[in-house]
């Protein structure tokens, strides 16, 4: 697809194993610069393993991940240090330290990776919190925040080092639909205002189509399709159609479950 943005990262025939069990098979796709790429698939399809390869946490298996034309698997310690300074990662859990305040959590990567004085770091943490609508919550402990706020605090920490590339694992997980949509908007804003390259791993169909410039559909360790949301939506590939239908059915089932909880089963039946 042509979007006027060159690929910053290219995954070239990547295979991956846990012991002798193969979990990724000949994965090939590109991640365009300053755009949002969503890797979508059901639980267990290998998308989180792929994410671990992309952030340099898993380095085994044949195939390559090229970053700016250089093989990530061949980066030495210094190369990995430089790469890790270029990336931010928001893990599914938010991964905040519960014994620290929100502002202290954001300061952690700055204290570990820079020589900046504490005064500067404290101001940087406040700036990041403000950008994510959490300016008043720096002194709070993570346990005092709602799920959505914890996600935003985790995002503030992922952004602490001003990363060029942001990886986000299941941003909607554990969030209600409205909060999840708010987080999607934040990701779109980061792309628009800062020109950030963002890679999101999710099983949420709606969110994937809402935010992606490029969609990568995975199933059982393999790539089913790569394209723009429109290209994926209009795909005539039977496997892609089947995947989209299965996911849409899952959404329907979930919605029914939610409605039956608040309305009662009789109401659901009469409404059909």
């Amino acid at each position: 697809m042509s979007m006027g943005h060159s690929d910053l990262i290219e995954v070239c025939g990547l295979n991956s194993y846990y012991d002798s069990r193969q979990v990724l098979f000949d994965i090939r796709f590109g991640i365009p610069d300053k755009r949002i790429t969503v890797i979508m698939g059901v639980s267990g399809c290998g998308k989180t393993t792929l994410l671990r390869h992309l952030i340099g946490l898993k380095r085994t298996g044949p195939g390559q991940i090229m970053v700016d034309g250089r093989d990530l698997g061949k980066f030495n310690e210094e190369g990995m240090r430089v790469y890790r300074r270029r990336i931010g990662v928001l893990f599914q859990s938010g991964a905040l330290f519960n014994s620290m305040t929100v502002a202290e959590n954001i300061a952690v990567p700055l204290k570990v990776h820079t020589r900046l004085p504490d005064e500067t770091i404290q101001i940087m943490a406040l700036i990041k919190l403000n950008c994510l609508g959490l300016a008043e919550f720096g002194a709070y402990m993570p346990s005092q925040l709602s799920g959505g706020m914890r996600k935003r605090a985790g995002l503030a920490r992922a952004l602490a080092m001003d990363p060029e590339i942001l990886f986000v694992d299941e941003p909607s997980s554990g969030l209600d639909p409205i909060t999840a949509a708010g987080l999607d908007l934040l990701l779109l804003e980061l792309r628009e205002t800062l020109g950030m390259t963002i890679i999101v791993v999710t099983h949420e169909l709606e969110s994937a189509f809402r935010i992606s410039d490029r969609l990568v559909v995975m199933d059982r360790g393999r790539i089913l399709a790569v394209g723009s949301p429109d290209e994926i939506r209009e795909s005539q590939d039977g496997r892609v159609l089947q995947f989209l239908k299965r996911e849409a059915d899952t959404v329907k089932v979930n919605a029914t479950g939610y409605l039956s909880r608040i309305l009662g089963n009789e109401t659901i039946r009469s409404a059909r």
Partner: peptide, 11 residues
Amino acid sequence: LDTSGIAMLVE
């Protein structure tokens, strides 16, 4: 100019 530069300007 990154966030550390802006924080320095605040100081």
